[in-house]
Amino acid sequence: KSAVKALFDYKAQREDELTFTKSAIIQNVEKQDGGWWRGDYGGKKQLWFPSNYVEEMI
């Protein structure tokens, strides 16, 4: 599983989504079709976030 870095702040709209700030590192990313991926951040595990808010880390 990979890690991504947030390009923008994102505030969860639902309880199954992540809230994060710009430059946050989201771990254990599971990529899905449809523009939403799952990952771990801030003590939350495998919640959804919009993939267009992040960049992949190499």
Rank of each mutant, 00 (worst) to 15 (best):
Q27E: 15
R38K: 12
E56W: 07
E56P: 10
I25K: 05
F20C: 05
F8C: 15
K5R: 14
W37H: 03
A24I: 05
V4C: 15
E30K: 13
E30V: 15
L47N: 09
E30L: 14
P50G: 00
N52T: 13
S51V: 09
S2N: 13
N52F: 10
T21L: 12
T21K: 13
F49Y: 02
L47E: 05
Q32S: 14
E17D: 03
F20H: 02
L47F: 11
E30P: 01
G35D: 11
S51H: 07
E17W: 00
S2T: 15
G43N: 10
K11Y: 14
G42N: 13
W37S: 06
V29H: 01
P50C: 09
W48I: 05
A6F: 00
E56Y: 06
A12F: 01
K5M: 09
A3Y: 13
D40C: 03
L7V: 11
G42W: 06
G42S: 08
K5H: 06
G43D: 13
S2V: 15
W37L: 04
G42D: 13
E55D: 08
E55I: 12
E15Q: 10
W37A: 04
D33W: 08
F49D: 02
N52P: 06
F8Y: 14
K22C: 09
Q13Y: 06
D9F: 00
K45N: 10
I26T: 01
K1C: 15
E17R: 00
K22R: 11
I26C: 04
V29D: 02
Q13P: 03
L7D: 06
L47M: 13
A12G: 12
D40L: 00
K1N: 12
Q27T: 15
K1E: 10
N28L: 04
L47Q: 09
I25S: 03
P50R: 01
N28S: 06
K11L: 15
V29N: 01
P50L: 03
E30Q: 14
M57G: 09
Q46V: 02
K11Q: 15
Q32P: 12
W37M: 07
A6V: 06
F49R: 00
V4L: 06
G43M: 07
K5Q: 09
A3W: 14
F49I: 02
T19D: 11
Q46A: 11
K5N: 04
Q46D: 07
A6R: 02
V54I: 06
E17F: 02
A3G: 08
F20I: 05
D40N: 03
A12L: 01
E17K: 00
A12C: 08
Y10Q: 04
G34N: 09
P50E: 03
L7A: 07
Q27C: 15
A24V: 08
P50H: 03
N28P: 03
N52L: 10
K44D: 11
A24L: 02
S51A: 14
W37N: 02
R38P: 03
W37V: 05
E55C: 13
V29C: 06
P50Q: 03
E17M: 02
I25N: 03
A3E: 12
D40T: 00
K22I: 09
S2L: 15
K1T: 14
S51F: 06
A3K: 13
A12V: 02
L47A: 15
T21E: 14
I25Y: 06
A3M: 15
D33K: 10
W37I: 02
Q27A: 11
K5L: 11
G34Y: 06
I26D: 01
E56D: 13
T19R: 02
G39H: 00
G35S: 08
K1R: 15
Y41E: 03
Q32T: 13
N28A: 05
K31C: 07
Y41S: 05
A6H: 03
K11D: 15
I58A: 13
K5I: 14
Y10F: 06
F20Q: 02
V54F: 02
K1I: 12
L18W: 04
L47S: 12
I25W: 08
Y41I: 07
I26M: 03
K45G: 05
K44C: 11
E17A: 00
M57S: 09
D9E: 08
K22T: 10
I26P: 01
K22E: 09
I58V: 14
K1V: 12
L47T: 04
S23V: 04
G39Q: 00
A3F: 13
V54H: 01
K31V: 09
K11V: 15
M57K: 05
V54Q: 02
G43R: 07
S51R: 09
F20Y: 01
S51K: 10
A3D: 12
F20V: 03
Q46G: 14
E30F: 11
K1D: 11
K5S: 05
D33C: 14
W36S: 04
E15W: 12
F8R: 15
G35I: 08
D40A: 00
K44N: 10
L18G: 00
G42E: 11
V29P: 00
Q13T: 12
G34H: 07
T19H: 04
S51W: 06
N28E: 07
D16G: 10
Q46R: 09
K44F: 12
W48A: 05
V4G: 06
Y10S: 05
S23K: 09
G34F: 05
I58N: 14
V4E: 03
Q46F: 06
A6S: 04
L47P: 01
S23M: 10
F20K: 02
Q13D: 09
D9Y: 03
W48F: 09
E55R: 07
A24F: 00
F8S: 09
L18N: 02
D9K: 01
V29S: 02
Y41A: 06
S2W: 11
W48L: 13
E56T: 09
Q46I: 02
K31R: 13
K31T: 07
Q13C: 15
T19A: 07
N28T: 00
I58C: 14
S23Q: 10
Q27V: 15
G39A: 00
F8E: 11
T21Y: 11
K45M: 13
F49T: 01
Q32N: 12
E15A: 11
K5F: 07
Q46L: 05
K44T: 06
W36I: 01
Q27W: 12
K45H: 13
R38D: 03
T21P: 15
I25R: 04
M57A: 09
L18S: 01
D16Q: 08
